[in-house]
Design a protein around this nucleic acid. Structure first.
Length: 886
RNA sequence: GCCCGGGUGGCGGAAUUGGUAGACGCGCUGGACUCAAAAUCCAGUGAUAGCAAUAUCGUGCGGGUUCGAUUCCCGCCCCGGGUACCA
């Protein structure tokens, strides 16, 4: 039989589609398995070979699980809001919906050509009003939820206790009070704004040199604009705790923990000189209070204006203006040159009454802690650099007993910085009864914190790096907020029955004036009047791309529901996601944001699980060779030829350098899977994506290996498709043994997601069959079952060829029988002083003294023990024998 | 700088977690088939020395623990990813 992959793949893809083979329905009689791929953004460029890597992996697992009796949910959809379609609209006037539709069609066609067993009846698209209706619905829930710190959960805003004094001020005050507690709130937020693009830009879009990544100009500045924000930090502790129970890669958990950034320390109040005002700082090292020799406020700190003395006013103002142009990265500056200005004001150190200067410096950020610090130059590197630059006293209070003499004497003299543990010195104040001299760091922290608390000067505090989530974008192509701003200042959300709030048609997609979204051009759509004649204007911002991807896994459980986001029954049956596979680039943001939404929905009783994704697996990136000239310009890979291991530009003949890099348009090295499917078939592509290396490893793409797996499939067809090779009667023992080894290894490897070694085991088995020449039908059919998750089209074809009629996809997975694997003898490697010298076949149950006898009696042994004495003989049963000679 | 991965033949990668390093595949070499080539099938393929049996070396580098180390410990070098003064 020839391997006509084109015909075979077409035939089975049609069969699966017509018979709805992979349709999944809620069925309580079976255990469920929910396996999810991170759904793609359908870009105009179509699929690249990186996409099918994760999709093939999940497909193998899903097909395997079906044969193990699981009811499998394996859906696919499109994260289709996004900037490229909008930018294309600005350039060409084409509505983003049209571009998006086209791209989705391309993606669907390409994905379907790979024979992936998705339930296409569950396909979803985040830009579909029937989908984003519910995204808006969830936003309304966020808006109407406050976080009760006592119960540690989100609750309905109507249950928020209103203080008496607020109640007495009337309805407007109550509204105002509630808005300070809602999980979604509307407020001024400092954002980067590009005057050239007229858009707000993300932190990461602003480059080190202060220019905007997208347009290259330096017309970026930080502005306060009204934005929607989500109070994700309220959930910091729950998001942190939740990680412990998850089967996720430790690295990803670490990254989330670091992002949340919990730290324990203390808030300390410093009195300002000549005032009864207090300056509150956050420190993780309250123990170093005796060494605090100055203080720093962030330039944005509200007290800066108030405390600056007239003679310092100009300098401070000037400094604030300059630092507003800097990115956080700029503030960190590669030159590490600390900048700052003295405010002219002093504070009193509560622990020793010392008068210390208050400075403004941009190495302190407003977004963290209280935006103010006490500086301890002797024991903090940053403060040390600053103090040296501005000639501020450095007082050592921690004797570095473990440092070398040279370093230690420098630290004691205030000429070097020491941040590790030591023994306190200069740290007592008899008058107020505190003394930590002689204690260690941990004891010092405890003692000082206790003292601060008992004297009402501060308190032990937990702090998080995690900040409020800026949840609005000034774009057209996103979910509109279901929000109205009324002329009397009230901000209200729509009623559920007014959803979806669809995007209006606009003439141009360009942003509005002063950073407003393109929706501000939407004319009548904007204006609303309520039953009392009160006028209002719709929110013109749209939601970020995260919104749709924050809950899509829930919609997949019941994607066509038109009266609720998903039914309780479906959610309860399918959730949580049992296996979630996607790229490591989403390790923090997407996974943290959707966990946050999930926890809110859980608190509101909308979902039944505390965490959405039980097991997470990050597939590694597939890199590709790229070629560059000596000047660094890139040459498309198809313009390169190889001669004697060197690379040349076909057109110019210039020698090129080969590098390995991420596939991207700019490197001109994107590989499209269509070509592989065309030349070798989908089964070969699937097999190769898995065979190229471990799923979680980063690996380069070369098409050389495709031939290898194609050849394997061709050999399977050539052997098992030839009826002369199939015999009646008993299978030979040797073949049964290797067959059962293969059943075990393929099953185990699928469970462990080690697909590369599963495939090589099937190759070993096939090579064996070639050697022995004939196998029984049972043996052949068993291999088809093992192969089916990997190369489903071919497996179905061979299964049918051998007289089976029901579709293989649900046929029970073969059972491994250990009795075929029992060995009678083991081929012992015999080593002398750790070096293997010869092999010796011995019965597996031979007692040790018999083994020793056999080894010592062996011809080869004489040579290695001649003139030496045997110290001992180590025998590891069925592993190795080692003779130690001296 | 810090954190997390990783360094194994010409190449992609195996190695049951301390027990035969290099499975499987690519590439290469030789043979069979063919008028010839391609395709296919069979055999070989870590390096060095040797006709050979065999020996020596060999998992980034240098030490250590052990009967035995790709695997564990200490120090260093290189590559990839993440992150940016978080008080």
């Amino acid at each position: 039989m020839d391997y006509n992959f084109k015909e075979i793949e077409k035939k089975w893809q049609q069969y699966w589609a017509i018979n709805n083979t992979f349709k999944s329905e809620t069925d309580f009689s079976k255990p469920k398995f929910y396996c999810l791929d991170m759904f793609p953004y359908p870009s105009g460029a179509g699929l690249h070979v990186g996409h099918p890597e994760g999709y093939t992996a999940t497909d193998i697992i899903c097909r395997y699980k079906r044969t193990k009796g699981f009811n499998v949910l394996h859906p696919m959809g499109w994260d289709a809001f996004g900037l490229p379609a909008e930018q294309y609209a600005i350039q060409t006037g084409t509505h983003p919906a049209i571009t998006t539709q086209k791209n989705c069609d391309t993606f669907r066609r390409q994905i379907q050509s790979l024979g992936l067993s998705y339930d296409w009846e569950r396909e979803i698209n985040t830009t579909d009003p029937n989908y984003f209706k519910w995204t808006q619905w969830i936003f309304i829930r966020l808006f109407n939820t406050w976080f009760d710190h006592e119960q540690n959960k989100g609750r309905d805003i109507r249950e928020l206790p209103i203080p008496e004094e607020v109640k007495n001020q009337g309805a407007a005050a109550i509204q105002q009070y509630r808005s300070t507690k809602r999980l979604a709130y509307y407020d001024n937020a400092q954002v980067w704004y590009c005057r050239n693009c007229k858009t707000v830009c993300a932190n990461e879009e602003v480059l080190n040199d202060g220019s905007h990544e997208k347009c290259g100009t330096k017309d970026v500045e930080r502005r306060y604009l009204k934005q929607w924000m989500l109070r994700i930090p309220h959930y910091a502790e729950r998001l942190l705790e939740g990680l412990d129970s998850l089967d996720w890669p430790e690295g990803v958990k670490d990254m989330q923990r670091n992002w949340i950034g919990r730290s324990t320390g203390a808030e300390v109040n410093f009195l300002l000189e000549g005032s009864d005002k207090k300056l509150k700082v956050y420190t993780t090292r309250p123990d170093t209070l005796f060494g605090a020799t100055y203080m720093v406020l962030a330039p944005e700190h509200e007290l800066v204006k108030e405390i600056t003395t007239p003679d310092q006013n100009e300098a401070v103002k000037d400094y604030i203006r300059q630092s507003a142009l800097k990115s956080d990265l700029d503030r960190t500056d590669l030159a590490k040159k600390k900048t700052g200005v003295f405010t002219g004001c002093h504070a009193i150190n509560p622990i020793n009454g010392a008068k210390i200067q208050i400075w403004v410096a941009d190495y302190v950020l407003m977004g963290y802690g209280t935006g103010a610090i006490m500086a301890v130059p002797a024991h903090d590197t940053r403060d040390f650099e600053f103090a040296q630059t501005f000639d501020i006293p450095i007082i050592c209070i921690l004797d570095p007993k473990n440092a070398n003499d040279d370093l230690r004497s420098k630290v004691l003299a205030g000429e070097a910085c020491w941040t590790e543990d030591g023994v306190y010195i200069n740290s007592s104040n008899k008058e107020i009864g505190i003394d930590i001299n002689g204690l260690s760091k941990e004891e010092g922290i405890q003692t000082v914190t206790n003292w601060l608390e008992s004297n009402d000067l501060g308190k032990s505090t937990i702090n998080y790096k995690l900040r409020d989530w800026l949840f609005s974008r000034q774009r057209y192509w996103g979910e509109p907020f279901p929000v109205i701003h009324w002329e009397d200042g009230e901000v209200s959300v729509l009623h559920d029955n007014e959803l979806p709030l669809a995007l209006p048609e606009v003439e141009k997609y360009l942003p509005g004036d002063s950073g407003e979204s393109p929706l501000s051009n939407a004319g009548d759509w904007l204006l609303v009047t309520d039953e009392n004649g009160r006028k209002g204007r719709r929110e013109t911002n749209t939601m970020p791309q995260w919104a749709g991807s924050c809950w899509y896994y829930l919609r997949f459980t019941d994607p066509k529901n038109d009266h609720e986001p998903f039914s309780k029954i479906a959610e309860n049956y399918w959730m949580p996601v049992d296996l979630y596979v996607g790229g490591a680039e989403h390790a923090v943001l997407h996974l943290l944001y959707s966990r946050f939404w999930h926890k809110v929905l859980y608190d509101l009783g909308i979902v039944s699980t505390n965490e959405p994704f039980q097991k997470l697996f990050n597939q590694g990136m597939i890199l590709a060779f790229a070629y560059e000239t000596t000047s660094g310009s890139k040459v498309p890979s198809d313009q390169v030829e190889e001669r004697d291991g060197k690379y040349f530009n076909i057109g110019t003949g210039e020698e090129l350098r080969q590098i390995v890099a991420k596939m991207s348009k700019s490197l001109k090295n994107v590989v499209n899977p269509d070509d592989v499917v065309q030349g070798y078939g989908a089964d070969s592509l699937r097999l190769f994506e898995m065979f190229i290396g471990p799923l979680d490893a980063t690996k380069p793409w070369t098409e050389n290996g495709v031939k290898g797996v194609y050849n394997f499939l061709r050999r399977v067809v050539a052997f098992f498709g030839e009826m002369d090779n199939i015999i009646e009667g008993e299978e030979r023992k040797e073949t049964l043994k290797i067959l059962h080894q293969t059943i075990r290894k393929v099953g185990d490897d699928i469970e462990d997601m080690k697909f590369n070694t599963a495939i090589s085991q099937m190759m070993v088995f096939t090579n064996h069959c070639y050697k022995v020449g004939k196998v029984t039908r049972d043996t052949a059919v068993t291999l088809f079952q093992l192969l089916a998750p990997f190369a489903p089209h071919l497996a179905e074809e061979l299964w049918e060829l051998h007289g089976n009629h029901a579709v293989l996809s649900y046929h029970k997975w073969p059972v491994f029988d250990a009795s075929f694997l029992v060995e009678e003898a083991f081929d012992y490697p015999v080593s002398f002083n750790g070096k293997v010298r010869f092999k010796l076949s011995l019965p597996v149950d031979l007692p040790n003294h018999e083994i020793e006898k056999a080894v010592l009696g062996h011809d080869h042994t004489t040579k290695w023990i001649e003139g030496k004495t045997i110290a001992k003989i180590i025998i590891v049963a069925n592993k190795i024998i080692n003779v130690v000679v001296k």
